[in-house]
């Protein structure tokens, strides 16, 4: 835990910014990579490191940042849904209905698709919880956040190393 403290801090920040309403509008594809970059920089500051960073280490910090962001993001998303009995999926349901109805498909297929989401919607409205929604949140968060966290770690290490290369050595 202590080894990846910077990942924990930055992962928490990224997880909150991704999920909490209003802050979510700041969400961007650079958020997780930026969190990984910040985690690497914090780790270097905390350990007084000034030399080139090993790519493998940066990758691990990025990966851990992504995992922490996924954990905090998933928990926050599920808790907010449980409390408010509302979420993106419910807000997007009318749009989904419009989209499905606009597609040139037969009625039985349209009804099949809509009934699946209707069931999820009703569960969330009634209990604030749905197994299918929970599963999708966990899968999405872990896949996307770990991927972007790792990419951020790789890019961050290279940016830091390129700055060190450009700094005149005494």
């Amino acid at each position: 835990m202590k080894k990846y403290l910077s990942s924990f801090v930055c992962g928490f920040g990224a997880g909150v910014l991704q999920i909490v309403p209003v802050a979510k509008s700041l969400s961007c594809c650079l958020l997780l990579p930026a969190a990984s970059f910040l985690a690497i920089s914090l780790d270097r500051k905390a350990n007084n490191l000034t030399g080139r960073i090993q790519i493998k280490k940066a990758l691990m910090i990025g990966l851990m940042t992504g995992i922490y962001a996924a954990i905090f993001g998933s928990v926050l998303d599920l808790v907010i849904t449980l409390i408010t009995k509302n979420n993106d999926l419910i807000a997007a349901f009318p749009e989904l209905q419009r989209m499905v109805n606009s597609f040139p498909l037969n009625e039985s297929l349209k009804n099949e698709v809509l009934s699946l989401f209707q069931k999820v919607r009703e569960e969330i409205l009634a209990y604030g919880f749905s197994w299918l929604y929970t599963f999708s949140v966990l899968v999405n968060n872990f896949v996307v956040n770990t991927l972007f966290g790792s990419i951020g770690g790789l890019i961050g290490a290279q940016i830091i190393n390129s700055r060190i290369n450009n700094t005149p050595q005494n």
Binding site: S27, G73, N140, F148
Partner: peptide, 22 residues
């Protein structure tokens, strides 16, 4: 729209991308 089977996944995939875009 081209492969109707994918319709079942649209909201979930959209939610996945919402993590990395507003």
């Amino acid at each position: 729209e081209e492969f109707p089977l994918l319709l079942n996944f649209v909201p979930f995939v959209k939610k996945g991308y919402s993590l990395v875009c507003h």
